[in-house]
């Protein structure tokens, strides 16, 4: 069966592993595939079968947040079509998961059939770390990292999906990793999708406050669950000449840190 064709829409026979459709997210697909592979490893280690439908591009947020509902709706329909046959749909991003889970349903006012489909779909969607902990019941991972890390709470994950203690709990089980909280970890990093290029001065001010908090935490590694925020913070830290490394939380949880950190050159 090609990866394009969605599996049948019946629940898996008892005893079969849950079938997960990985929503890669456009930024992970383009900039940091290692996050996608880390997500696959984490879910496979936890007993899932993971598939990656090729009929996916982006969750549609750029259109949705620019007021272009028609395009956002088309993209939402395509994503739902590609993924609704899976038991679960998981994205390594709070922002994209929230788009799929919370905002798709808002796009179908006045179209009860599509709304119903979006609601059924919504129930299957999870952000990666919350899927591992809240759905699969994972409370530790087999991974090691020697050093200190600080965790930034990306906005959508935190406020729309309630992701806060889950990543911290799993990080605490990473051997050798010391978690150092930064001040205002719940404050926006200034990325905001197209915001950061539409209002670069303001975005710069916000991310500068963020990098100050990151530096003051004394941690050697910055982690978060959203690549957009991570690229923004890494880009600023590197511009400021900081030595702090930046990674997606999934890379550390999966023990897959052999790739250079975000914005770093290949070692050796």
């Amino acid at each position: 069966m090609s990866a394009d064709a969605a599996p049948a829409q019946t629940p898996p026979p008892a005893g079969l592993p849950p079938r997960v459709g990985l929503f890669v997210t456009c930024l992970v697909d383009l900039f940091r595939p290692s996050v996608g592979f880390a997500a696959v490893k984490l879910m496979e280690d936890a007993g899932c079968t993971v598939e990656v439908p090729a009929a996916q591009t982006c969750c549609g947020q750029p259109a949705f947040n620019s007021g272009d509902r028609a395009d956002a709706r088309d993209i939402a329909k395509a994503v739902i079509r590609a993924f609704e046959g899976y038991d679960y749909v998981v994205a390594p991003s709070g922002s994209c998961a929230s788009m799929l889970k919370k905002h798709y349903v808002e796009l179908f006012d006045g179209d009860p059939a599509a709304m119903e489909r979006a609601n059924l779909f919504s129930a299957k969607v999870f952000e990666l770390v919350s899927f591992l902990t809240d759905v699969l019941g994972l409370d530790q991972v087999e991974a090691a990292f020697s050093g200190s890390a600080t965790y930034h709470d990306s906005c959508s994950g935190l406020r729309e999906l309630g992701i806060e203690r889950q990543p911290r709990k799993l990080l605490q089980s990473v051997e050798g990793l010391e978690l150092k909280e930064m001040q205002d970890s719940d404050v926006c990093c200034g990325f905001g999708g197209t915001f950061c290029v539409k209002y670069p001065d303001i975005s710069n001010k916000i991310v500068s406050e963020k990098t100050r908090c990151i530096e003051e935490s004394g941690a050697e590694l910055l982690l978060a669950g959203d690549l957009g925020c991570l690229m923004n913070m890494a880009g600023k830290l590197k511009r400021e000449g900081s030595r702090i490394e930046v990674r997606h939380v999934a890379e550390v949880l999966a023990g897959m840190t052999e790739q250079p950190a975000i914005g770093e050159k290949k070692r050796g």
């Binding site: 890669v24 992970v28 697909d29 383009l30 900039f31 940091r32 595939p33 290692s34 996608g36 592979f37 990656v52 090729a54 950061c196 290029v197 539409k198 670069p200 001065d201 975005s203 710069n204 991310v207 690229m231 923004n232 890494a234 880009g235 600023k236 590197k238 511009r239 790739q259 975000i262 914005g263």
Partner: peptide
């Protein structure tokens, strides 16, 4: 320019996830 005026842009790792996965 909107991005790089104030911060660096991290380079992509290599091939896209979809290409590598396929």
């Amino acid at each position: 320019g909107g991005w790089t005026r104030f911060r660096d842009l991290p380079a992509p790792q290599g091939a896209t996830f979809q290409a590598q996965w396929a």
